[in-house]
Computed example of a mutant assay.
Amino acid sequence: MTTPDADRRVAVVTGASAGIGAATARILAAQGFHVVCVARRKEPIEALAGEIGGTAFVADVTDADAVAALTDSLDRVDVLVNNAGGARGLEPVLEADFDNWRWMWEVNVLGTLRVTRALLPKLIDSGDGLIVTVTSIAAIETYDNGSGYTSAKHAQGALHRTLRGELLGKPVRLTEIAPGMVETEFSLNRFKGDRERADAVYKGVKPLVAEDIAEVIGFVASRPSHVNIDQIVIKPRDQASASRYNRT
């Protein structure tokens, strides 16, 4: 990987190939971080890394060997943004798809665990580490037909919040960002490329965009080391809860 200046802080952003991850990489680079853009898709992260002067690292957070290789390639880590995740399907419990559930738990929960556990020693060694985990309002609420995703996000949130206590006294801050409706590739991926169904999610609502979330992550990263912002829930004005919207 490209080696940044020894004194330059390093931020690792997972799921950086598009959406919130890509927008966050741009924000952190503008703040002076050397950003390591991590994702499964090679071409978009190489383009992004070239744009922001960062480093692309192709890795799937569900692959232990890939995460180990990522860890070995890094001399230091000051910020970790756990952004990789996603949803598959939207079915009631009675019709639950076990493959979808396994994938959602593997990427959202075990993926976050795998990356965080691997990079935590470097974050502690930095003397001023920060872990930002992008969960969802689905980590706080439930909604009909969303049990696979909401259960995974609840577990991811519990993992992150548990670390807040376990790392007390260590030089690492932890912030959970829980977005509501954000128009990215999320719904398109959830519905396996069904554009019509994905577009219907946002119909009549002005959703957030990836940059809205990235700007907040940038704000968190710019706080002084004694300030820990535990949790931020971000929803568009047109959204009151996971299942209540103002549609025009």
Rank of each mutant, 00 (worst) to 15 (best):
A240I: 01
S241T: 11
L94G: 12
G86C: 04
A158I: 00
E141F: 14
D78A: 03
W105N: 10
A139L: 12
Q239L: 06
T24W: 00
A25S: 15
D230W: 08
Q239P: 03
R88F: 10
A56S: 12
R247W: 00
L130S: 13
E106L: 13
I20K: 02
L120Q: 10
R114P: 02
D144R: 14
T112W: 10
L110C: 08
I131D: 03
G204I: 02
V216A: 11
A158C: 01
A47N: 10
I45Q: 05
T248N: 15
T71W: 00
N189D: 14
A66M: 08
S187C: 14
W103V: 01
Q156D: 09
Q239I: 02
G53T: 03
L208F: 08
A240D: 07
Y143P: 01
E211Q: 15
W103G: 02
R195H: 14
I217S: 01
S241V: 08
R102T: 12
R114C: 06
V132P: 02
P4T: 05
V61R: 05
S243Y: 12
T162V: 03
A152N: 13
A11S: 07
T142N: 13
S73Q: 01
H154W: 14
Y202A: 00
G53P: 04
A198Y: 04
A242M: 04
A210I: 03
R41H: 13
G54H: 09
